[in-house]
């Protein structure tokens, strides 16, 4: 009897988590896939939903609004992730050496990440406000003409990019610094004994050894960049027009402004495919739950 109970204990232990994730995460995700086959509007009873089959996907893949949003998302993700990786890695290499007070600086660097995305959006909306914003105050002080930042498609896109770089470059710094601490010191010493210049040490020894950490960090940032919604919601709400309307925001608007829950789910499935592919790539490189005995 006791043996049977002991053998059941992993199920008792994992049970509550599996149940909660199942009910509130897995089931809704599967529902999103199912909804994508139906025409269903907000406010209508589910029983009146109409079966469409795959035609919603055909519609989504040829819908100019969806394609535009997909391009905005991909361009946004490509720009912010490359900028954050380059700036973050460079700064981490610069500040690698242990100096007094480094822990205080590290504390300051993680602060942008801790601020709620909706608040980050609010802050940058204030910075780029045409009438009150410090961005225009600075331009005026320099003798340059003030801009209506968030009413100009390219400048609004720039504002969105700047807010993301501000919030997430420190993440890259923290990851690369942790990676640098774990480097095999003997290889670095060997390079120095062989007379490598500091520049050669960075380019030929440190960066190649850091590559696994860099790849994982870039993938984690890419996944997050494809999920960005809240900062843009507060900063531009996708505007002007649809210049900054990334896919998650387009999904939200389709569902809760346009009231097309079924169609929003079809677009969701497209986004899920991208995000899951990136996720699987990350997990294939480094599975944090790998069996320690394997």
């Amino acid at each position: 009897m006791k043996q049977i109970l002991d053998r059941l204990s992993p199920y008792f232990l994992a049970g509550p988590a599996v149940l909660v994730i199942g009910v509130a995460c897995l089931y809704p995700t599967l529902m999103a896939v199912r909804l994508s086959f139906y025409k269903w509007s907000l406010g209508d009873p589910w029983s009146s939903a109409q079966w469409l089959g795959l035609s919603a996907f055909r519609q989504a893949l040829t819908d100019p609004a969806v394609l535009h949003s997909l391009i905005v998302t991909v361009v946004f993700a490509a720009i912010v992730v490359s900028a954050e990786m380059v700036i973050g890695t460079a700064l981490a290499l610069l500040m690698e050496r242990q100096v007094a007070g480094i822990s205080l600086f590290r504390t300051i660097f993680i602060m942008p990440m801790m601020v709620a995305p909706i608040v980050v959006g609010m802050i940058w909306r204030y910075v780029f406000d045409t009438q009150f914003g410090p961005a225009n105050a600075l331009l005026t002080a320099l003798g340059l003409p003030a801009q209506s930042w968030l009413a100009n498609p390219s400048l609004a896109f720039l504002a969105v990019v700047v807010s993301d770089i501000w919030q997430w470059t420190p993440f890259v710094i923290i990851m690369v610094l942790a990676g640098l601490q774990n480097l095999d010191q003997s290889a670095l010493e060997a390079a120095q004994i062989d007379g490598a210049t500091p520049r050669q040490v960075i380019l030929r020894v440190k960066l190649p050894m850091l590559m696994p950490v860099l790849v994982i960090t870039a993938l984690m940032r890419l996944i997050d960049a494809f999920r960005v919604l809240e900062v843009i919601f507060a900063l531009t709400f996708g505007g002007p027009g649809s210049a900054t309307e990334v896919l998650p925001l387009h999904i939200y608007k389709t569902a809760f402004v346009g009231q097309q829950l079924g169609y929003a789910s079809a677009i969701s499935v497209l986004l899920l495919v991208v995000v899951f592919a990136l996720s699987l790539a990350t997990l294939a490189l480094s599975n944090p739950l790998k069996d320690p005995r394997q």
């Binding site: 995460c25 809704p28 995700t29 999103a32 909804l35 996944i223 494809f226 999920r227 919604l229 998650p248 925001l249 999904i251 939200y252 569902a255 809760f256 829950l261 929003a264 789910s265 969701s268 986004l271 899920l272 995000v275 899951f276 990136l278 996720s279």
Partner: peptide, 9 residues
């Protein structure tokens, strides 16, 4: 990695 906007609907 499921985007929260995808879950919301």
């Amino acid at each position: 990695s499921v985007p929260l906007a995808v879950l919301a609907v």
